[in-house]
Design a protein around this nucleic acid. Sequence first.
DNA 1: CCGAATCCATTTTGATACTG
DNA 2: CAGTATCAAAATGGATTCGG
Lengths: 133, 133
Amino acid sequence: MTTQTAAERRQEDKVAFDAYMEQCPTHDLLGVIGNKWTSMVLYQLTRGPRRYAELARALPGVSAKMLTQTLRSLERDGFLARAVTPSVPVQVEYTLTLLGERLVPLLDAVQHFAEHNIDEIRASRDHYDAASL
Amino acid sequence: MTTQTAAERRQEDKVAFDAYMEQCPTHDLLGVIGNKWTSMVLYQLTRGPRRYAELARALPGVSAKMLTQTLRSLERDGFLARAVTPSVPVQVEYTLTLLGERLVPLLDAVQHFAEHNIDEIRASRDHYDAASL
DNA sequence: CCGAATCCATTTTGATACTG
DNA sequence: CAGTATCAAAATGGATTCGG
């Protein structure tokens, strides 16, 4: 055990680093808000509580499956709350929690940066793509 | 053409919304920084220029393919610059551009939020998972 | 040293049909 | 209305091999 090859040591480093990354809060959060529909759903909820069908109408691109999955994930993380009214038919309303409200300014900051720098980014992409002909 | 079914209208809405999302700067940026290795590479570069092998050593979990892919993508977007010194063997150094430097405070904000709220998020997850037994 | 190219596994996303 | 179930497709990530 005291003798290990360089390959073995690298393998151990990799495993250790993977473990570190999985418990890294920043990486965790980026994984959440980086999902395709998360920011869209959150944005809708900043404008007030929404029912399932309202969200589906506001986001015509999302399938029922992905909408449900996104909502469940955000509920699990504590960003929104799900309230069921047992009428017929049932009503389900989604609302931002306090934690969800605290996330909004951060998403605003992302939006602000994006809108102020997208032209430069797109110009860079065009330049890069043009150079590789 | 003046007559269309509800299904046809929904399909058009979906296509239009997809197009809108693809050109949405915020969604674009989230797609970039949400990638698995982007934030890690960027973080390394905030501490100064780094060579390819230095990055690979600092990030033991990344494969050569993904490191190259991440670097190329960030270069294309204009967040970092790639400088080749034609020695033997060649040296390649990656440095943050001004645009890249401007992105750093935003990533710091993400990190700040993540570290201050991760306990609450994890508690919510534990509670959610415990409830679904 | 710094990759490119290829092939394969995993994850994510979506279309469709069905249910209380 | 508010989902679930199933299947298929697409994007992403990674291991391996090879080259200037």
